[in-house]
Amino acid sequence: MNIFRLAGDMTHLASVLVLLLKIHTIKSCAGISLKTQELYALVFASRYLDIFTHYVSFYNTVMKLIFLGSAFSIVWYIRRHKLVRRSYDKDHDTFRHYFIVLPCLILALLIHEKFTFRVVMWTFSLYLEAVAILPQLVLLQRTRNIDNLTGQYVFLLGAYRALYILNWVYRYFTEPHYVHWITWISGLIQTLLYADFFYYYFQSWKNNVKLELPA
């Protein structure tokens, strides 16, 4: 474990807590894409299949349970909770996210480190996570006034993977044989997809104006 990875995990945890805070306290999911939440639930479900068969550490197991539990409860809240679901903007959350699940699965079947169920599913989760934010970014372009919690959520979610890139650089230089191109390229693409969001987020913070993404 290194500080970049710990900072990345804490930033990821913070993004989840900000979203749960928003949904649980003000009972609103305005501006939040259900499709991105469903894709993330699938990412964690396919990545953490080995949570009970390959013990890594207490920390690792606890964090996996938190990410799994929060992802599925957020999907449940937006789909089922009578108050929260009313604030879901289904008319604008129209990205065909099923069209990205299959290509990620096919790609994982073609390009992976090892052709085993566990590794292919883990690779699938990396490819899927790289594009999981797309429905959310599309929705933000269509959302007029993006509230602070939503902006912070997306920012933290993008920042966590950027910190992971620093972690991979650190591990590459400190651990022999630590080379994982699939993880690195997926993570880089994932972070690059946030580039314009980061730009507008920074502008809104610097000029102290409401966050707004151009359509």
Binding site: R5, V56, N60, W122, N167, R171, E175, Y178, V179, T183
Partner: peptide, 10 residues
């Protein structure tokens, strides 16, 4: 997990 294995990450 193997040394340098990426699956020790979240």
């Amino acid at each position: 997990s193997r040394a340098g294995d990426a699956k020790d990450e979240l």
